[in-house]
Every structure is written in structure tokens, then in C-alpha cells.
Design a protein around this nucleic acid. Structure first.
Lengths: 349, 349
DNA sequence: ATGAAAGCGCTAACAC
DNA sequence: GTGTTAGCGCTTTCAT
């Protein structure tokens, strides 16, 4: 075993073989216009013969662009975010770009680290769903950034893609109301998170409009995980007088966790407790009954965000704030109690 | 708005400010031994003051190492693979490396593209689960590679991490047998895929040992997706005389798809049909009853694979073939028919 | 302990 | 059309 040629061939090797200068090789490789067809063919053959492969590092160093993009999301193991990642991934691949995916695990420190890693890798741009609102640096991040989710509100100067929370929450609340659930318990996200604030604001407004005091609503906090959903539901089920018969969860994982708690308590869904989720993850199909939920267009969010980012990277300055509508997916976890309970017209009060 | 300094500061800027040469700056930054403590402090302060950030591209070009690793898996939207990715991701982050994750979508062409992208990005190494066995180039891939999954069999010279299929399948088959299911229908992966061959080989051997002709078994093919699982189960349920009362699926997604088909047909699981899965994805918890399955240590697979890869990258040549055991997770989708049906001792035949 | 200088592999003016 | 030359920002001898 003698190492014949430890290093990969460079344009210089190719140039020598083809009998031209290295700039000619470079031109041939980047199919520039000003080059003889014959010469190109010759160069290409030479390149082929030594198994030449462009060194992106050198190319990037020179051109200042790496062809790499970044994506920072809270949790790649959450199917919703996995879908977003796929959408972004696919679009990037389509355009010949590579995507660096980072999962912050809802941890601001890890998020900061990932953001730093992206800068160091010299990515051409990034799509970010900031966990904390403490991220004030995004504005001067020094590269094209597209936001996903609630934080868009905090950085109106940045492009963003998200689902229409207002429309989605109202859609859900209205659907519940039509089924006779006029005062659902709310399973909200973590206190202090902007997404929670936005969610609750819509809920608040919705009930105010109907002359119902939002303070009457039962609200439990969760961490967007199955476990926290189970725990929150357990808390609700502990209540004696006002045990809720309907729960609206801020995401599907918590909704499914709640379902588990209901089942564990020996109760039936939707017989005893109706559950409405938010996200539209595939796992909701498998529950029995299936989880009724407000579906966000996850794949599309990733796709559009990447599109915006690529536009920005290539100089087309398109400041856009895209809001995609949510959809209701009824799979049976809601019981219609409209005709069961005596309907009380709360018109004038 | 006048642009003060469009370009990021380089070591030259830092050097000028600190009043030293650029090599001194480089030394300070890479905490070399041969440098005065005072000088270093001075340099660091200068770097700080201009917000200097190392250019990894230049560094990589010089040193030949990028600090980036690659991961190529079939489907990031499949929770099992998402977990593998997380395991790898976390370990990489722990060591200060970045991970490029690619999803091939079971498509050999996309896989080849991704592999090429990795080479172009000059990653220091890669973890791969080859979709097709057509990938013969892996051996001469020109960089450290760690294999995940069945293909390890094809490339014994490469390091690999995987779950113990033989142990896992036998564990499942044995568990079924103990519950009285002596001839489960098999919901296998796609024809031609090595993973399928390995799975079926174990099944084959298992029944041969028990003097049962494996050809008697009902076998349906699937694509590792929910939809294909549903379709396969529908096919099985169509049978008149020998409709199976037990199905062993090669992955959880197909198992859950089968569950959907059973439900849709108005049948009960496990009352009418028992279902056993393979993977151990979280979604199996939500089905009612929960999906009983053979759990693979997904997170750990990613973690160990990354560990091996990092070892290889840093020169510690550790050719290892790690096989992690599977575990049985009983969540109730199996009915014990041992005492129901007249038990026939198949001892001597 | 520090500086000078030579590249890593490529691109982009600029000549001819 | 093609060759020459000068870097991109950094690391790494080799002097001093």
C-alpha cells in the first residue's frame, strides 16, 4: 500500500493535463461564455480523467458565498417542526443549496450557540424560529434572515412566514361554539412565550365579543410536550365542581397528552371530554378517535420561508410577511353537546 | 444611512488595532503556547472591540478540516429517523461540530445528490443509511464514513451502528408465540431492500426451527409508510378463509397504518386483529390501544454513530461494528389467545 | 515571543 | 479566447 496521491486534484492538475492555464479551467468549469468549445471539451475530459471535484471552500472564500443556508427550530423531534424542516430542505435542494438544521430544544443558550455556528459556517442566510424574545440581535444578524412564527411581530423589518394564529384560533373556538362548547378549558403554552401571549389574546378577544368574561375560563400551562399535556389535563380532571368537558390545546402534542390523561382516568373522549388540538401532526390520526385539530400548513411554511430566503440571498430584496391560513381537521374527538344541554341564549345578558 | 464598513473585520484589522502582526493575532486566537500573556490580552481586546469573528472558510481551506459532518437518512419526517438525527446532532454539538442533515426520501438519485453535496461541502465525515444497495462507492468515498442499518452487512470494512435485527425479530416472534400467535402475517418492507431480506431471513429461520413451513405465512409488502400499511392490511382483510388474526409489521408507521385499516373495517384491535410493530416511535402511544412494538434505541444509534465518526475523523482509527439490542414495549395491541384456542403441541411433528 | 512570507484552491480583473 | 496576476482570510514554517 503506497499512497500514490494523497491530495485531491486541483484545477492546477487539470490545467497541466489539459495543457492550458488554470483560469481557462476555471472558465470551463463555470461555463462562462468566453471560451472555445473545443477547449472546454478538452478541459472537461482532463477533469474527468483525474476525478476532479471543485473545492467549495476555496470557491466560497473567493466568492463570499457558501451555498449553505441555516434553519433553527425548537425541536426536530416534534413532527410539526420536522415537516417544516422537510419543506425547507426540499426547496433548498431544488435550488442546489445545502441546509444546516439545528434544534434548539427550546433552550435560549443552545439557540445562541446554533446561531453562532451558522455565522461561523458562513451560511448565506438563515430561517429562524426564535425561542426567546430575548433574541434582540436578529436585526443586526449580518445576513439575510427569514422568521418563522410569532416573533415576526417583534421584528417587523424582517421577512417572515407563519400561520394565521388569529384566524386559526377563532376557527377552532367558533367550531367548538357551534358544537355547544361555549367555555372550553385552554391548554396554553409556557408563560412568557410570545406564542402563548398571541394565542391567549385571540381567545380573550373572542370571548369579550360574546360578553363572556375570559377570566372565567380554565387555563393550564404546558411546555408543548406530551408529558406536560398529560399533567395539565390531570390537573383539570382533579377539579370537582367545574371539571371541563372540553379542552382546546395550543398544540397537538399537548392535546394528545391530554387524551392520554383522559383515557388513564377511565374517561372517554369525546364522550366525557372533547379535545381540540392545534398543528395537524400525523400522529393525531392514530388516536381513537382521531384528534380533531387546527392544521397549520407545516410543509408549506418551510417551503415559502426558504423561497423568501433564497430571494433575499440572491439580492432580490423582497420584504414580505406571509401569513398562511389554518384549516380545521375533524377526526372525531369533539362531541356535539348543542342539543344535549339546554341552550342558553347569551344575547343581551 | 452610510455604510461604514461593509465587510467583516479580519485578523489584519485586529492586528492593526492591537499593533502586532497578523501571525501574532492568529496565535492568540488559537491559544498557542508560544505567546506572551500580555500580548494575547491586548489582541483579544482588539478583537472584541471590532467584533471580530473567525472565518471558518479560510481556516478550513488552510487546515483542510471544516468541522462539519454529514448525515444522510431516508426520511426526516419519520419520527424514528428524526430521533436518530437528534442523537447525532446533540453529540456533534457537544463536540463543537455542525451537522448537515439530508433526507433522501428513499430515492437513490436524491441520495447520490446529497452524498455529492457532502463531498462538495468538504465535510470531515458522514453517517449514512444507504437506501439502495446500488451504492458501491461508499468504500472509496474518500472520507470517514459510519454506516447505520442493514447495509453494514455489505460493507464490513466500514464502521457501523445498528440495532440487533435478529434479536429484535426473534424477540417479537417469540412474544407472539407465547401469546398463542404461532403464524402471524408479516407486513414486510419493499422487495429488494436489504433490510427486508434481513428481516425475512430471521423470520424464515425462526419458523424452520419450529418445523413450520415459512411459505405458509401470509406476507404483504409495504413502503414503510402509513398509507402502504393501510393498503397491505386491507389486502389481508380481504381474504376469506385465512384472514389473519395477528400481524407483525416491519416498522411502526406501517403497523399504525394497519391499525387504521382494521378500525376502518369495523374490526377491533386487539380483539379481532393483534398488531405488533417495529421501531418504537412515540406516535404508537396515542393509538388506542397503544401499539405494542419492538423498540430500537433510535437516539442512541445516532449518538453512538456520531461518536464513532468523530473518533475516526480525529485519527483514532476505530473500526467498530456496534449492534444495539431492541426492547419489547407492550402497550396492549396484542391479544393473548393461548388459552382460547386449543393449544397444539408441535413437538415432534 | 514575534514578524515575514509562503501558500490552501479558487475567482476575477487585467492584459495580450 | 487565453494567460497572467493578484488576492479571499487564514495557518504555518522559517527567521529573528
Amino acid at each position: 500500500m503506497k499512497s500514490v496521491k494523497p491530495n485531491r486534484p486541483t484545477i492546477i492538475d487539470v490545467a497541466r493535463i489539459a495543457g492550458v492555464s488554470k483560469s481557462t479551467v476555471a472558465r470551463a468549469l463555470s461555463d462562462a461564455s468566453n471560451i472555445n468549445a473545443e477547449t472546454r471539451k478538452k478541459v472537461m475530459k482532463a477533469a474527468q480523467s483525474v476525478g476532479y471535484e471543485r473545492n467549495h471552500l476555496a470557491q466560497s472564500l473567493r466568492s463570499g458565498r457558501t451555498g449553505m443556508l441555516g434553519l433553527v427550530i425548537p425541536d426536530i423531534a416534534n413532527p410539526f417542526w420536522a415537516e417544516v424542516a422537510r419543506g425547507a430542505q426540499d426547496k433548498a435542494a431544488e435550488k442546489g443549496a445545502s441546509l444546516l438544521v439545528f434544534s434548539s430544544d427550546w433552550d435560549p443558550v443552545r439557540e445562541a450557540n446554533h446561531l453562532r455556528a451558522l455565522r461561523h459556517a458562513r451560511v448565506d442566510g438563515a430561517i429562524v424560529n426564535p425561542v426567546e424574545d430575548s433574541i434582540d440581535d436578529l436585526g443586526r444578524f449580518g445576513m439575510p434572515v427569514v422568521l418563522i412564527g410569532s416573533s415576526a411581530e417583534r421584528f417587523p423589518e424582517l421577512s417572515s412566514v407563519g400561520s394565521d394564529i388569529v384566524q386559526g384560533v377563532r376557527l377552532g373556538l367558533n367550531y367548538l361554539e357551534n358544537m355547544g362548547h361555549t367555555r372550553p378549558a385552554i391548554l396554553a403554552g409556557p408563560l412568557g412565550r410570545l406564542a402563548r401571549v398571541r394565542f391567549m389574546r385571540v381567545v380573550h378577544d373572542y370571548f369579550i365579543e360574546r360578553n363572556i368574561d375570559p377570566a372565567e375560563l380554565l387555563v393550564e400551562d404546558g411546555e408543548y410536550t406530551v408529558e406536560s399535556g398529560t399533567q395539565a389535563m390531570k390537573n383539570l380532571l382533579k377539579r370537582s365542581g367545574d371539571r371541563p368537558i372540553c379542552v382546546f390545546a395550543a398544540n397537538d402534542l399537548m392535546a394528545l397528552g391530554a387524551l392520554l390523561a383522559v383515557r388513564e382516568a377511565g374517561l372517554k373522549c369525546p364522550g366525557d371530554v372533547s379535545i381540540l388540538g392545534f398543528d395537524g401532526i400525523p400522529a393525531g390520526v392514530f388516536a381513537d378517535p382521531g384528534l380533531t385539530t387546527i392544521s397549520k400548513p407545516a410543509r408549506k411554511i418551510g417551503d415559502r420561508a426558504m423561497e423568501l430566503l433564497l430571494d433575499q440571498v440572491s439580492g432580490r430584496v423582497t420584504h414580505e410577511r406571509i401569513v398562511l391560513p389554518c384549516q380545521l381537521t375533524d377526526r372525531g374527538s369533539l362531541l356535539d353537546v348543542k342539543d344535549t344541554a339546554p341552550k342558553q341564549m347569551s344575547s343581551t345578558g
